[in-house]
Amino acid sequence: MFKNKLVNIMLIILIALTLVGVVSVVLVNQFRAEVNPYAEPTIDDIVSLSFETEEITTNLRSNDFVRAKFLIHVDNKNALEEIQKRDFQVENIIIRSLAGKEATDLVGPEGIDTLEAELQEEINRLMQTGAVVKVYTTQWVVQ
């Protein structure tokens, strides 16, 4: 490049320092990006941290019956593992909650919302690692 070796060495050192500086600024900005804990989870997060119950058919207090299936979204992988192991307890909670209801209690979106909130609260009492974020009803028949 240049005939003077000292100038060549200085240019190489300057370029190397500039590259290190640029890379460090990019990395600091990348790792410093704050995660908003109140941000809505992405659909991939919901799917990867969800447990789906089997279809449950049970009698209601009003001598009607309900056939339902639920997707339970938890907040971390440890909670997902725990809820998968506690599937029989979760189904028991669902059956007990439904058995105490009348068909009129479960009519419309308000009835489903109330049931989902109740199930979320009951399952959260059971959980030791993590918590249930939301219960989604994926199948629903009341007769």
Rank of each mutant, 00 (worst) to 15 (best):
A117I: 12
N4F: 11
V35N: 08
I95L: 01
H73D: 07
A33R: 05
V133G: 11
T104N: 15
R125L: 11
M127H: 08
V20F: 09
L126W: 03
N63R: 13
N29C: 12
I72Y: 05
F88H: 12
I83G: 00
P37H: 04
N124D: 13
E102D: 13
D105W: 03
L98H: 00
S50I: 02
F2P: 09
N124L: 04
T104C: 11
Q30R: 14
E54Y: 05
T18D: 06
N8E: 15
K69C: 06
K69Q: 10
N76F: 06
Q139R: 15
Q120I: 05
E121I: 08
M1S: 14
F51M: 01
P41R: 06
D75A: 03
K69D: 08
N8K: 13
V66Q: 09
F65A: 12
L106E: 04
Q128V: 12
I93Q: 01
G111V: 00
G130S: 03
E122F: 01
N63V: 11
V90D: 02
V25K: 12
Q30L: 09
A103T: 01
R125Q: 15
M1D: 15
F70W: 04
I43M: 09
I13V: 10
V22P: 12
Q30Y: 11
V133C: 07
E55P: 09
L11E: 12
T18I: 07
L6V: 12
V133A: 13
I95R: 02
G100N: 05
I12T: 13
K77M: 10
N63A: 15
K5N: 11
A99P: 11
Q143Y: 01
R32F: 04
I83Q: 01
K134C: 08
F2H: 15
V7A: 05
P41G: 02
I94E: 01
R125S: 06
V22R: 08
T18N: 06
L126E: 01
E91G: 05
V26I: 07
V135H: 00
A33N: 14
Q89G: 08
L14Q: 08
T58K: 01
G108W: 03
N36C: 01
I83A: 09
I46C: 09
N76W: 14
G100Y: 02
F65N: 13
T129Y: 09
A39I: 04
K77E: 12
I72C: 02
S24K: 06
N78Q: 13
V23E: 03
L17M: 03
P109A: 06
S97N: 08
Q139H: 14
V135A: 00
R125A: 10
V132T: 04
A68D: 10
I95K: 12
I43N: 04
T138S: 02
N92G: 06
I95S: 03
P109G: 14
N76G: 10
R32H: 11
L106K: 02
M1R: 15
Q120A: 08
I13M: 05
P109N: 10
F51C: 02
E91V: 14
V23L: 15
L126P: 01
F2E: 10
V74K: 05
G111F: 04
